[in-house]
Deep mutational scan, measured.
Amino acid sequence: KEMRNAYWEIALLPNLNNQQKRAFIRSLYDDPSQSANLLAEAKKLNDAQA
């Protein structure tokens, strides 16, 4: 469930391009235990690109 939530949050971040989203989501599938960390990194990048 945590992975699914992280997937959708990443997919809906407005300032990431599709390539960036795909990279984060690929990492999510590679290591679901890192969901919270990956989401935090994606949000950080999203904010930096705002």
Score class of each variant (00 low, 15 high):
Leu13Asn: 01
Lys21Ala: 02
Gln49Ser: 09
Leu38Cys: 04
Asp47Cys: 05
Arg22Gln: 12
Leu12Val: 09
Leu38Gln: 04
Leu28Ser: 01
Tyr7Gly: 07
Gln20Trp: 02
Leu28Arg: 01
Ser33Met: 14
Glu9Trp: 07
Asp30Ala: 14
Met3Ala: 04
Ala42Arg: 00
Lys21Asn: 01
Leu16Gly: 00
Asp30Arg: 14
Ala48Val: 11
Gln34Pro: 01
Arg4Gln: 13
Ser33Ile: 03
Ala42Pro: 00
Lys21Pro: 00
Tyr29Glu: 05
Asn17Gln: 05
Ala42His: 00
Tyr7Leu: 13
Gln34Gly: 05
Ala36Phe: 10
Pro14Leu: 06
Ser35Glu: 06
Arg26Trp: 11
Tyr29Trp: 04
Ser35Val: 09
Tyr7Arg: 12
Ala50Cys: 04
Ala36Cys: 04
Arg4Ala: 10
Asp47Pro: 01
Asn18Gly: 11
Glu2Gly: 03
Lys21Ser: 01
Ala36Ile: 13
Leu28Met: 10
Leu38Ile: 14
Leu38Ser: 03
Leu45Phe: 05
Asn18Val: 08
Lys44His: 09
Arg4Lys: 14
Ala40Pro: 02
Asp31Lys: 14
Ala50Trp: 09
Asn46Glu: 01
Pro14Lys: 08
Phe24Val: 02
Pro14Asn: 07
Gln19Thr: 12
Ala11Arg: 15
Pro32Arg: 04
Tyr7Thr: 05
Asn37Asp: 06
Gln20Thr: 06
Asp31Met: 11
Ile10Leu: 08
Ile10Cys: 02
Tyr7Asn: 02
Ala36Asp: 07
Ala23Asp: 15
Ser27Asn: 10
Glu41Ala: 12
Leu16Lys: 00
Asn15Val: 02
Ala40Lys: 13
Leu38Glu: 01
Lys21Phe: 03
Lys1Val: 10
Ser27Ala: 10
Asp47Thr: 11
Asn37His: 09
Ala42Tyr: 02
Arg22Tyr: 10
Ala11Glu: 06
Leu28Asp: 00
Gln49Tyr: 13
Asp31Ala: 03
Leu13Ile: 01
Lys1Asn: 15
Asn18Ile: 11
Leu12Thr: 12
Ala42Ser: 06
Lys1Ser: 15
Glu2Ser: 05
Ala23Asn: 10
Glu9Gln: 12
Ala42Leu: 02
Glu2Gln: 05
Leu12Pro: 01
Ala36Gln: 14
Lys44Cys: 05
Ala50Pro: 07
Asn15Glu: 03
Arg22Asp: 11
Ile25Ser: 03
Gln34His: 11
Leu16Pro: 00
Leu28Gly: 01
Tyr29Gly: 03
Leu45Ser: 03
Tyr29Ser: 06
Asn18Trp: 05
Tyr7Trp: 07
Gln49Glu: 08
Arg26Val: 10
Gln19Lys: 09
Ala48Thr: 13
Asp30Trp: 15
Ile10Gln: 00
Ile25Trp: 07
Asp30Lys: 06
Ala36His: 13
Lys43Asn: 10
Asn18Arg: 05
Asn18His: 13
Lys43Ile: 07
Arg22Ile: 10
Pro32Ser: 04
Asp30Val: 14
Glu9Arg: 15
Leu12Tyr: 14
Asn5Trp: 13
Ala11Lys: 14
Ala42Asn: 00
Pro14Arg: 10
Arg4Thr: 14
Pro14Val: 07
Ser35Trp: 07
Asn46Cys: 02
Ile25Leu: 08
Glu9Lys: 10
Leu28Thr: 02
Leu28Ile: 06
Ala36Arg: 13
Lys43Phe: 07
Leu28His: 01
Ala11Phe: 14
Asn5Arg: 12
Lys21Cys: 03
Asp47Trp: 14
Leu45Pro: 00
Arg4Cys: 15
Gln19Ala: 14
Ala40Gly: 09
Asp31Gln: 13
Met3Lys: 06
Pro32Cys: 03
Asp31Cys: 04
Arg4Val: 14
Lys43Tyr: 12
Pro14Gln: 09
Arg22Lys: 11
Lys1Cys: 05
Lys1Gly: 07
Pro32Tyr: 08
Gln49Asp: 04
Lys21Gln: 02
Ala6Thr: 12
Ser35Met: 07
Asp47His: 07
Asn37Trp: 13
Tyr7Val: 05
Glu41Pro: 00
Ala23Gln: 12
Ser35Ile: 11
Lys43Glu: 04
Arg26Lys: 10
Asn18Gln: 13
Leu38Arg: 05
Glu41Phe: 11
Ser35Gln: 10
Asp30His: 12
Asn37Gln: 11
Arg22Asn: 12
Trp8Asp: 08
Leu39Lys: 05
Ala42Gln: 00
Ala48His: 11
Gln20Val: 05
Asn18Met: 05
Arg26Tyr: 11
Leu39Met: 09
Gln34Arg: 13
Asn46Ile: 01
Gln34Ser: 06
Asn5Ser: 14
Ile10Gly: 00
Arg26Pro: 00
Phe24Tyr: 09
Ser33Tyr: 08
Ser27Ile: 08
Ala23Glu: 07
Arg4Asp: 13
Ala40Phe: 06
Pro32Glu: 04
Gln20Arg: 02
Leu12His: 15
Ala6Trp: 10
Asp47Ile: 15
Leu38Asn: 03
Gln49Gly: 05
Leu16Trp: 00
Asn37Glu: 12
Asn5Val: 09
Pro14Phe: 04
Glu41His: 12
Glu9Phe: 10
Trp8His: 09
Trp8Asn: 12
Ala48Tyr: 13
Asp30Thr: 13
Asn37Arg: 12
Asn17Met: 05
Asn5Met: 07
Lys43Thr: 02
Gln34Glu: 07
Leu39Trp: 04
Leu13Met: 14
Leu45Tyr: 04
Arg4Ser: 13
Ala42Gly: 02
Arg4Asn: 08
Leu39Ser: 04
Ala6Lys: 08
Leu12Asn: 15
Lys21Thr: 02
Gln20Tyr: 02
Leu39Phe: 04
Pro32Leu: 05
Gln20Leu: 03
Ala23Arg: 14
Glu41Gln: 11
Gln20Ser: 03
Ala40Ile: 14
Ala23Cys: 06
Ala36Tyr: 13
Met3His: 08
Asp31Ile: 06
Glu9Val: 13
Leu12Gln: 15
Leu12Trp: 10
Ser35Arg: 06
Leu12Gly: 10
Phe24Trp: 02
Asp31Glu: 09
Asp31Arg: 08
Lys21Trp: 02
Ser27Lys: 11
Gln49Thr: 07
Arg26Cys: 06
Tyr7Glu: 15
Asn17Leu: 08
Leu38Asp: 01
Asp31Leu: 05
Leu16Val: 03
Ala23Phe: 08
Lys43Pro: 00
Gln49Phe: 08
Tyr29His: 06
Ala6Glu: 05
Pro14Met: 07
Leu45Thr: 07
Asn15Pro: 00
Ser33Lys: 12
Leu16Asn: 00
Lys44Tyr: 08
Glu2Trp: 02
Tyr29Met: 11
Phe24Cys: 02
Ala42Asp: 00
Asn37Leu: 13
Lys43Trp: 09
Trp8Pro: 01
Pro32Gln: 04
Asp47Tyr: 11
Ala11Asn: 15
Ala42Phe: 02
Arg4Leu: 14
Ser27Gln: 09
Asn15Trp: 12
Arg26Met: 12
Ser27Arg: 12
Asp30Gln: 15
Ala48Pro: 02
Glu2Leu: 07
Arg22Gly: 11
Asn18Pro: 10
Tyr29Arg: 07
Glu2Asn: 08
Tyr7Lys: 08
Leu45Trp: 03
Phe24Met: 04
Ala42Val: 02
Glu2Phe: 04
Ile25Gln: 09
Glu9Asp: 04
Asp30Cys: 07
Leu12Lys: 15
Ala50Leu: 11
Met3Glu: 10
Ala36Trp: 09
Ala6Pro: 05
Lys21Ile: 07
